[in-house]
């Protein structure tokens, strides 16, 4: 997504929601990761105005907050698609052919890993291990695992998500 599109989305953020999340943690700087997790659960990502707000309320410099969010894979600074595809990059999946699966998805959606399609339909991500090594190679679309994949099965699976 372009930066302009993100900026537009960020205009309608309700900061009262953020306040109610922060409230129980005020003064506890060590709780910044749980705060970010809860905020992201609410908005789907960490909008810039929200980050600025957390920084002010928690007395943590924005730069440090940014440092924490970019360190951990879980935190996203950009909006994500309606459907999240997670391609398992675990060892078992790798040797059972997950690179071929990724390639096919990238081809079909015309995005690279970490990106979101322009229509916000899909975000493509990689994950270190889903823990279903017996079903390798595996992808998760939202909460549904799809196992024992071959590249030719990919299109039908994606077609099932709007």
């Amino acid at each position: 997504m372009s930066n302009e599109a993100v900026a537009e989305l960020n205009q309608d953020i309700d900061l009262d929601q953020v306040d109610s999340i922060i409230e129980p943690y005020l003064g506890k700087k060590e709780m910044v990761i749980p705060i970010l997790q809860k905020v992201q659960e609410h908005f789907g990502y960490l909008p810039r105005p929200v980050m600025e707000h957390i920084s002010r309320r928690m007395h943590i410099p924005l730069s440090r907050l940014y440092g924490v969010t970019t360190f951990y894979a879980q935190f996203k600074l950009k909006p994500r698609g309606r459907n999240i595809i997670r391609v398992c990059k675990g060892t078992a999946c790798h040797i059972q052919g997950s690179p071929k699966i990724s390639e096919r998805i990238e081809e079909i959606l015309d995005v690279e890993s970490g990106e979101t399609t322009d229509d916000l339909r899909f975000t493509l991500e990689e994950v270190a291990c889903i823990g279903c090594c017996a079903l390798a190679p595996v992808i998760m679309v939202n909460d549904d695992p799809h196992g024992r994949l071959t590249p030719d099965k990919v299109k039908d699976i994606l077609d099932g998500y709007e």
Partner: peptide, 10 residues
């Protein structure tokens, strides 16, 4: 537990 390919702790 972050090792790709290990899930015993879980």
């Amino acid at each position: 537990e972050g090792d790709p390919g290990a899930f015993m702790d879980r």
